[in-house]
Nucleic acid binder design. Structure first.
Lengths: 349, 349
DNA sequence: CGAATTTGTGGAACCGGTTCCTTACTTCTG
DNA sequence: CAGAAGTAAGGAACCGGTTCCACAAATTCG
């Protein structure tokens, strides 16, 4: 492996001149620059990043911490981040900090301290107070995707507003009995769920309707949505005509549950999701689209800006979703609306 | 930020002694060691990885290259790798090398050359000849998950054997008209698909049955499986009684398609998948289980072993799957079997 | 008991870059 | 035309560790 000293020798210049020529900073004559460049090319010279970061203090890589990568949202954000970094020649170090694990503890206590990156992107991490402290104590910029806006910059969907619009969509279609599906009973994912619940409640309150929240078991997955929806829909007396799902995966689970129970969507039940998941189209799911990939890219931009000017104020970007109407929502049927009034049975099909 | 020199000064020893004390290598008296250790703790000393890798030549991190992270298999493998590395205190640099993109070209031409890791894990990369050349030219160990076994170590499912067993499962249940669902018409993912097709064909040949392959559009996703299955099953005259799907996502798409077309699973149609995807249980899918997370962990072990002894021979680990019987497969109905003989219609439901 | 070995420690070189400082030659500017 | 400013390049220090080597003291051995 040839180093910059070899390049310098081959080009007949000093190390410092070679360095300047290759980096493009400082005074170098055009003639020298090209001589160094071709010497470097001839030798197949590749700078040592270790040496570079040792002497400059910059590592040209950023750390990404997330609680899992095998969920749609997280994987998409990760791809967005990776693409954005790749385009700028930066590297990405991935840390999978699953809540409650020993690995997570180690990440926050040891790993992050090792100064291996110029900044951190924390995705849906929902850090404990001391975890956040540790991240900030590194003195490096931190950007969150989903999360606390008070101490770091953040980019995320405006969850409250989004759930509110989803709910209003159903209300506008004449639905009265609308439940929110997908608040976890345990509060491991509080941030997103509680905020969306709040938006739903707000919309219901403004329309003078009473809110009802159905809990999903554990994760916000399709099977969880399915199970919760089976519970919710099996009792035909209290059956809602509209469901606002916490996310598309839960919404799709609900649609599949409805189908299995013989409940027509959207004739007897309207379902609206949040995400615009890659499967939404297949299930004709009406949803509020967010673009996680773009959020990843935006997080990178925010982070780089913060690296460039370290004492700029943290920024909070709350993104507005776009309503994508497909075929899982429709007007509340006359009979179904009636059930609200007289409390009678919803039609079985 | 305090360096090892500060620690040495605080402990009243030389830099070299401090280094030995902290690394545990070489002669240091127990008394000195503990004095250095507490000095380091008091100062909150964290070694600079840049300096360490510059002087040792080892980076304590490994590169993972994959074409996407937002597919179930890849995300699971990635989590497995990350967990295994985390447990060993190694860092993971992620490179998302999407086929045909400019980013991929850059990864292979520039990024990998930057010596930022001690080894590479290539997941489902299906590298072109020159891409493989470049990886190997780095002189660092390479382990593939899915992929070529001739030039690198590899860990993967025994795809041919797996598809064969899936097919035999249906044959044993009395099915005769069995199609393989999910070979892409374009050959962008050749390795996995073609090998599985071969296993299917082998089983069919041995049972004296004729093979039929149905192509899915583009990716091996659930919507793709759905679309292909709708095509396949709409024509009730040639309808199969069994489907071997290239993977669970395609299998689930097929099950949903069957349901929408009013075809009972498993009464009128048996579907078997490969993977044991996280949604398999919800759809009662019979499948051949592979464990991608474990494959990621295994790849890490293989890689570390290869880093330890650089001139060991490459190893090929072909894993055997476990058949998980759920409720998407059942005996071929008498009527259905008869259709094979008389060529008549399969029952509509 | 003297020599050989083991143990403990410090000094200095080194890994491979970047950057500050100095020198020297040009080119403006008043 | 002298001095200031701009351009070009080299020397050496530095980033923060690890490791080789030298040396001294303690221990083992023949």
């Amino acid at each position: 492996m040839s180093g910059i000293a070899d390049v310098a020798r081959a080009a007949g210049v000093s190390k410092s001149t070679a360095s300047r020529a290759l980096s493009g900073a400082g005074y170098v004559s055009e003639e020298t620059r090209s001589r160094v460049a071709s010497a470097a090319a001839a030798l197949g010279y590749v700078p040592s990043t270790a040496a570079q970061s040792l002497s400059t203090g910059r590592t040209q890589s950023i750390g990404v911490v997330m609680p899992f990568v095998n969920r749609w949202f997280f994987a998409e954000v990760l791809e967005g981040i990776q693409q954005a970094l790749l385009a700028r020649g930066l590297d990405l170090m991935l840390y999978d900090a699953k809540p409650g694990t020993d690995g997570r503890r180690r990440i926050f206590e040891d790993v992050l301290a090792r100064k291996r990156f110029d900044g951190i992107i924390a995705v849906g991490l929902d850090p404990a107070e001391d975890e956040l402290d540790r991240m900030l104590a590194l003195g490096k910029p931190v950007v969150s995707v989903i999360g606390d806006a008070t101490r770091t910059s953040v980019v995320s969907l405006d969850d409250s507003h989004t759930a509110q619009r989803a709910t209003e969509h159903l209300i506008a279609l004449g639905h009265r009995r609308i439940v929110f599906l997908g608040a976890g009973a345990d509060t491991r994912w509080p941030r997103v769920e509680t905020t969306r619940v709040a938006g739903y409640e707000q919309a219901m309150r403004e329309a003078d309707l009473s809110a009802y929240i159905a809990h999903t078991p554990a994760a916000l997955s399709m099977p969880a949505g399915y199970a919760a929806a089976v519970d919710l829909l099996s009792d035909s007396r209290a059956r809602p005509t509209g469901i606002v799902a916490v996310c598309d995966e839960v919404a799709i689970g609900a649609i599949i549950a409805a189908r299995r129970l013989g409940i027509q969507v959207p004739a007897a039940l309207s379902v609206v999701g949040i995400d615009d998941h890659e499967h939404a189209e297949m299930f004709a799911l009406t949803t509020l689209r967010q673009n996680p990939r773009e959020q990843g890219e935006t997080a990178v931009e925010l982070l780089l800006r913060q690296i460039a000017e370290p004492d700029a104020e943290p920024v909070a970007m709350r993104l507005k979703p776009r309503l994508v109407v497909r075929n899982s929502t429709g007007p509340a049927a006359a009979a179904a609306s009636a059930t609200v009034v007289d409390g009678g049975l919803a039609p079985a099909e």
